[in-house]
Design a protein around this nucleic acid. Sequence first.
DNA 1: GTGAAGATTGCAAGCGCTTGCAGTGCAAGC
DNA 2: GCTTGCACTGCAAGCGCTTGCAATCTTCAC
Lengths: 320, 320
Amino acid sequence: MARLADVARKAGVSVATASRALVRPEMVAERTRQRVRDAAIELGFRYHPSAQALATGRSRLLALLVPDLTNPFYAPIIAGAQRAAEESGNDLLVVVTEESPERERQLIDRLRDRVDGFLAIAPRGAGSLFTSLDVPLVLVDRRVRGVPSVVVDTPGGLAELGAHLAELGHRRIAYLGGPRGSWADPRRLEGLQRGLDHEVVAFGPLPPTFEAGSDIVDELLASECTAAVAYNSALFLGLLYRLAQLGVRVPESLSVCCADNLAGLGLAVPEATTLHVPAEEAGSSAVDMVLGFVDGRSPEPRNRSVAVQLVIGKTTAAPR
Amino acid sequence: MARLADVARKAGVSVATASRALVRPEMVAERTRQRVRDAAIELGFRYHPSAQALATGRSRLLALLVPDLTNPFYAPIIAGAQRAAEESGNDLLVVVTEESPERERQLIDRLRDRVDGFLAIAPRGAGSLFTSLDVPLVLVDRRVRGVPSVVVDTPGGLAELGAHLAELGHRRIAYLGGPRGSWADPRRLEGLQRGLDHEVVAFGPLPPTFEAGSDIVDELLASECTAAVAYNSALFLGLLYRLAQLGVRVPESLSVCCADNLAGLGLAVPEATTLHVPAEEAGSSAVDMVLGFVDGRSPEPRNRSVAVQLVIGKTTAAPR
DNA sequence: GTGAAGATTGCAAGCGCTTGCAGTGCAAGC
DNA sequence: GCTTGCACTGCAAGCGCTTGCAATCTTCAC
């Protein structure tokens, strides 16, 4: 394994100069810089990460706390974060928190010496955990006072979705809510309501699962709503499944839609009316933000929001 | 941040002794060891990971290559690997390969200086990529000559499943196959066949998606099979969904089952007949194995296998 | 009492890279 | 011709930890 010293020798300069030629090229004469670079390439030089980390105090490692990996909603966020990290020469430590605040705390504590900063997806639990940490951290899809964050503007999208349903002529609209304690859930309901003149019929809190979606169907049908909006894809799929089983036609007898889109789920129901969530963007934006904190710039704004897009599919139509 | 030097000073010993007291306690006198330990605790001492890594040449970091995060099948493997890593004081770099061999190669190259070893989930593509690497690597759920691995014995489970179906009286049994190029797919088919007297009716290759599962249903029904075994959960769910839509009763008109179980999918269809895959175990076993290679022990056997368990649910019954 | 094996400990040299500071050479300014 | 200033470069001191080797201290056996 070639070290910087080898490069330096080959280029006929000191290690110091070799180092500078690579990290602070403007401090080095053009000719020298070129010689060092050539030597580096020729020798296949690669930094020794620990050595560099020890000397600079930067590990070029970021940790991403994610509640659980089985929820396909997080996958694109992770992918986006990963890409952004990679592009900036960092790597990502993805760790599963199981939504346990205790574990979150533990993990942060365990990893804080190892990483330069944290991204945290923590849809539930007290936000206070993140409030007085002295490490760079940005919260994803959640807002807590005093903590930098990137959120997805699902409520905004739901307002649009509500308007769409209203326009189709729906007057009695159901919202199949998310899990108890969810930060996003009440905001989504509120968003949907914002787009509507009539009061939303809210069901829930519901676990965000296929089963819950299918179990709620009887109650939903009894409510005489003409349209239903599901908190997330799993719920939505359960709903669809049970409706199919009961022979309820979609969208003829009931319009249904979902507050996030299923892309990448591998379970895509084609042409459902959904909100397209630019989750990758949220992930990468969050990474940019922590990196900003890491090297001392104070990225503004400290609370970002990415817009969602209403995708009108074939599961919504005018009520009969 | 307390360094080892602080601990040493507080305990009244040299840094060398302090270090040894913590990593090679048997080399240090009982009394001293205790003093050092107390001092460390009192000061809240924690190793500086980069410093330790630089000195020892071990980063205590492992990389896990995973094809994609949206496939819930991988989640428990990751969880298991994560747990095992954590327990042994290591951390896990989870990286998504998108099943691109090129990217796999790149990632390995990019991370090899950073991590002590690799775990790779690479269900498709040429195995040769892994064959002549000079880093510790173990393949998960895939076997390639000359490469250490941990596989899940799904074929064995399928043989049991086949026997179960045969016993119920099924004679014409369909297998809804996995994706083209899958290493596991032909082995699963072969496993299923092993449990049966009659020739399996094989469909596929099929993409392992919900859609593919629902799309194949017409063809499946036309085949007059009385039972069907799906390659994986997504396919299985699609199948179930479409059958429900068509009003085909399960298991009365058709027995269906799945070669992996849905636990943790959040989409669990209760009481389906499936194979329970101890994926966590596979993950943790793989970690133990790489760690073995990392510190020079040569863990035996170099090719491990974890057994799956047949779970008889309510989606299989005797044919009419 | 004496020498030697054995048990503890400390010294100091790294691990590979960064960076403050000092030194060099050169062109411009007087 | 002799300062000055500037652009480069090199020296060497770390970053915090590990570890081979030497030094010291015990403990025994003779």
